[in-house]
Design a protein around this nucleic acid. Sequence first.
DNA 1: CAGAAATACTCAGTGCCCTGATTAATTCGG
DNA 2: CCGAATTAATCAGGGCACTGAGTATTTCTG
Lengths: 154, 154
Amino acid sequence: MAAADLTTHPGHLARRLQQAHYLLWNAMVSEEITSPQFAVLNTLVAEPGLDQRTVGERVGLDRSTIAEVISRLSRRGLLDKVRDPQDGRRSLLHLTDEGARTHRKLTVRTARMNQVFLAPLTADERTVFFDLIRRVADAAEGLRNPEEPLVAPR
Amino acid sequence: MAAADLTTHPGHLARRLQQAHYLLWNAMVSEEITSPQFAVLNTLVAEPGLDQRTVGERVGLDRSTIAEVISRLSRRGLLDKVRDPQDGRRSLLHLTDEGARTHRKLTVRTARMNQVFLAPLTADERTVFFDLIRRVADAAEGLRNPEEPLVAPR
DNA sequence: CAGAAATACTCAGTGCCCTGATTAATTCGG
DNA sequence: CCGAATTAATCAGGGCACTGAGTATTTCTG
């Protein structure tokens, strides 16, 4: 059997895209704070006091991964984690001053990096780029919990 | 400072796309063989006897990662790894019969999965999708070794 | 209200992904 | 020809990402 052409395999392209981004992030944004870590900080700027699971949901990380990311951010003093007195299962998260400062600094750099990253595309193409990727990712995520919406939810 | 909108951040989208793909791969292709592992098998079908570094280059993995992936494939008996008698630094790689058989089986399943993954897009949109991602990834990879091609290489 | 079910988090295990340092082999330059 | 530079692979270390199993807490239900 002949070998497949990986340049038409979306999974392979997605991986290469992410690697390219990883590299550029390291060079232009930060070597200490990673892109997923920034996503967590960003979520807590918009919604302070969220619990761990919900933050994971916002940024698209599962329970285990978000726990690791948060533990690293907490260890570096960028956020505080306290038990919810109303519900002892939850951990509530708030940025520290240092965390807010870091978020501000990286927001600027991230915008610059995105400009460079997307430089090969025209403005119209960028819109299409976002739209296509979002549609594919959303659809695939929707496949996780099948059925249910097909008939009336009970 | 306001929080950024992550849905317009290509890095975040790339990560979500890859995760969605990971999930679908697990469900529809294989729980044992991962997508990067398949990419390695696929490369060795096209070019048997390649050395480790070149395989990494083909599939877009750095020296350390490709070493791990190959060691796993070798441990499972899907490929053989032998020192190049002509150049003692290199390890030359060949698929075993089992490796070739696995590649054939997964090629079929991968094609089916790609259909499902890309189902939200029309045929035209798929072409654009590939083109845009490839251009962004290629450009970012080109930033790694700057200068050189700008003037005559010496 | 007590037991069952659900929920938030943690832990162990596997695999991908990178950098920087080290080792072994080959090639290049004087 | 021999030391220096280059190259392929390995190792140590940090971080992301998932699953399955386990613990603690809360909520639901008979």
